[in-house]
Write a protein that binds this DNA or RNA. Structure first.
Length: 421
RNA sequence: GUGGAUGUAGCUCAGUGGUAGAGCCCCGGAUUGUGGUUCCGGCUGUCGAGGGUUCAAAUCCCUUCAUCCACCCCA
């Protein structure tokens, strides 16, 4: 009879190199965002389902068929499929946008009930940033610059391409939408099944259909760029000029519409072709209407979200290693007699340095103890036998480089270690 | 949600109806205060789970779970 419980589909245990890689991507994003003055906000993993249906859009795939939803006593609750809606809710709840223009960043698990495959999991990790209260494209361009900085720090800038588009303001968007629906309606019976359904619900999404026949029809379709009014056009042009000034390459894709409903003006996506079928590593845009839609005062805003596990995966594909967390020093007492002395030495090192110090436990012969030291990944073994303990000395053995073992007084140990690299 | 492949030791895998295997790892010895190399020896299994067919099932059948890949969609 088995009492073991299998891993839930699409969930993962993360450790060792895989975790190191994800953590390092996350921390580079965090550091960079804070260097631009963005402040960390920690958001709940679960929200009322209504926040997502209203904020993200009922007809989006993420909401309509990919949410983990459960019924609480009075409300329907869902695990968040993305972070923006929660972040906006938090800003509204705390009344943060009142004589203030918060710039926030967050990181955490998101959940989508999809079939897992390479680079796609039911629980995945995003880092996101949102800036509230700015209507100018300078903010949109800054968001992209931050991300570009991170690609460069992570050494993957060459592997990632940026696509941008403008959906225009609400008026432009509405005019284009009407024209698009009118045009596509003529071809209704020639469109693929999904696109036919979307014609009523979410016609813009038809633009990024992968169906060849649909794409053929779209070649002659009204383009958003012809429907932008002056305000929208100026916004988009200035956005592009700023990117150019930053030396950031972006290609305009007029079919880029994003999967979530709330976007206006600039939208953008970062893609790579190194992750199997998954192309996208991140995306974002401006969402000037969302705060009001979610019951706050009207407030322009823009943001992005990056799939950090996809970025980590990309770095692994490229063979870029991340620092793993192993001890620096492994302390071995050769017999039980020297245990207390060894513990004192370890404690002293932890106090006087920031080295990670692991002490051998579990006994065994010297050979086994040395083997454990080797396996721990530590660069140095501190060996303490009867002779060392009696004279208040410690023997240092370098495990990774060819260097002669030395014996030093305990008092000199921290300096010896710190200078040994 | 749809389709294909896969699931045997800690890991990588062989085994297609008749006693569950190899390599690596791990443990011990050679080397009683020195790992990693070498030599010698040793341990390791609900064959993913449940049911069925059969004298006999890792192998055939059904169900189920999981993983991988792709579709769809997205990060």
């Amino acid at each position: 009879m088995s009492t073991r419980s299998p891993l839930v589909r699409g969930m993962r245990d993360l450790y060792a190199d895989e975790l190191a890689s994800i953590r390092s991507v996350e921390s580079v994003f965090g550091d960079r965002l804070e260097s631009y003055g963005y402040e960390l906000i920690r958001l709940p993993t679960m929200e009322r389902t209504a926040l997502f249906t209203r904020g993200i859009g009922e007809s989006t795939d993420a909401v309509s068929k990919e949410m983990f939803t459960l019924d609480d006593e009075t409300d329907s609750l869902s695990l968040r499929p993305e972070g923006t809606a929660s972040c906006v809710r938090a800003v509204i709840d705390a009344n943060m946008y009142r004589g203030n223009q918060p710039k926030l960043w967050y990181a955490g698990s998101m959940f989508r009930h999809e079939r897992p495959q390479l680079g796609r999991y039911r629980e995945f990790f995003q880092v996101g940033a949102e800036a509230f209260g700015f209507d100018g494209p300078d903010v949109d361009a800054e968001l992209i610059r931050i991300v570009q900085d991170v690609w460069e720090i992570l050494d993957i800038a060459d592997e990632i391409t940026l696509e941008i588009n403008s959906l225009g303001n609400a008026t432009s968007r509405r005019r284009h939408r009407n024209a698009l629906v009118e045009y596509l309606a003529q071809f209704n019976d020639q469109l693929d099944e999904d696109s036919q359904r979307r014609l009523d619900q979410n016609p813009l999404r038809i633009l990024d259909s992968k169906n060849d026949r649909t794409q053929k029809i779209l070649e002659q379709a009204p383009s958003i760029s012809d429907y932008l009014d002056d305000e929208s056009r100026n916004h988009f042009e200035e956005f592009q000029e700023r990117l150019e000034r930053f030396g950031i390459k972006a290609s305009v894709n007029t079919h880029l519409v994003r999967g979530l409903d709330y976007y206006t003006h600039a939208v953008f996506e970062w893609n790579t072709d190194k992750l199997g079928a998954q192309k996208q590593v991140g995306g974002g845009g401006r969402y000037d209407g969302l705060c009001e839609l979610l019951g706050g005062v009207p407030c322009p805003a823009a943001g992005f979200a990056i799939g950090i596990d996809r970025v980590a995966l990309l770095r692994n594909e490229l063979g870029i290693a991340s620092p793993t967390s192993h001890p620096d020093v492994y302390v071995i007492a050769l017999s039980d007699e020297e245990d207390d002395f060894a513990l004192d030495v370890a404690a002293k090192l932890r106090t006087e340095s920031s080295l990670k110090v692991r002490v051998h436990q579990g006994g065994g012969k010297v050979k086994a103890r040395m083997r454990a030291a080797d396996r721990s990944g530590a660069a140095i073994a501190l060996i303490i036998g009867a002779q060392e303990a009696a004279s208040n000395h410690v023997s240092l053995k370098w495990l990774r480089i060819n260097r002669e073992q030395v014996t030093v007084p305990v008092t000199e140990l921290p300096t010896t270690l710190l200078n040994s690299n």
